[in-house]
Amino acid sequence: MRDEVKAAVEAILFMRGERVGTDELVEILDVPMPELRDIMRELIAEYFQPGRGLQIVPVDDGYLMCTKKEYSDILARAARPIRRRLSQAALETLALIAYRQPITRAEIEKIRGVKVDRVINNLLERGLIEEVGVKDTVGKPILYGTTAEFLRLYGLTSLKDLPPLEE
C-alpha cells in the first residue's frame, strides 16, 4: 500500500512537472497528511542518492520534481531555445516585480523612471506576471505579481530562491 502511494506520488509529480500542493496530493491519493509527509521524506531521500539527475524539492507546502542543480550546464544545452528573448527593459521590470510584489504600475514607474505600460502588457501576455489584486488606495490600482511560469523559466523552485538584492 505504502509503496503504491509512493509510486503514485512520483508519477503525479513527474506528470505535472510543477509544484503540486500537499492539499491536492492528499485529496487525489486519499491518504492522511502525516502519512503523505512520511512517504515524501522517504521519496526525497531516495532521489537524493547520487546517480540520479532528478530531485524532489519541498516548496511552499507542496512538492516539485525537477532536475538537480549539478547538471545545469548540460541542461542549458538540452533546453528548448526561447523563442523571443525579453528586452532589457522588460527584464528590469520583471526583476522589480519579482522582488517587490505585489506592486502597482505607478510604484514600478517611480523606481524605473519611465512609463511601463507596454512592458507590463508584454509580461502579462507571456504569462510571467499576473494581476494579483488591487491596492487599497485611491483609484484602487492593480497589483502585479509573478506567476508559476516565471519560476519555471528562471529555474526557481520558489521566490525564496531569488538571491538577495545588492546593497
Binding site: 513527474f14 505535472r16 512537472g17 510543477e18 530531485q55 524539492v57 516539485l64 520534481m65 525537477c66 532536475t67 538537480k68 542543480k69 549539478e70 545545469s72 550546464d73 541542461l75 542549458a76 544545452r77 533546453a79 528548448r80 526561447i82 528573448r85 525579453l86 532589457q88 527584464l91 528590469e92 521590470t93 520583471l94 526583476a95 522589480l96 519579482a98 522582488y99 523606481i111 524605473r112 519560476l151 519555471r152 523559466l153 528562471y154 529555474g155 526557481l156 523552485t157 531569488l162 538571491p163 538584492l165 545588492e166
Partner: peptide, 24 residues
Amino acid sequence: FKEAGEHLQQREQGLIERIYYREV
C-alpha cells in the same frame, strides 16, 4: 534592479547553476 534583471537573464541561459522543470 538592473542587476537583478541581468541575473535573471543569466539564469534563463543556464549561466548560473539552476534547476530545470520538466518541459511540459
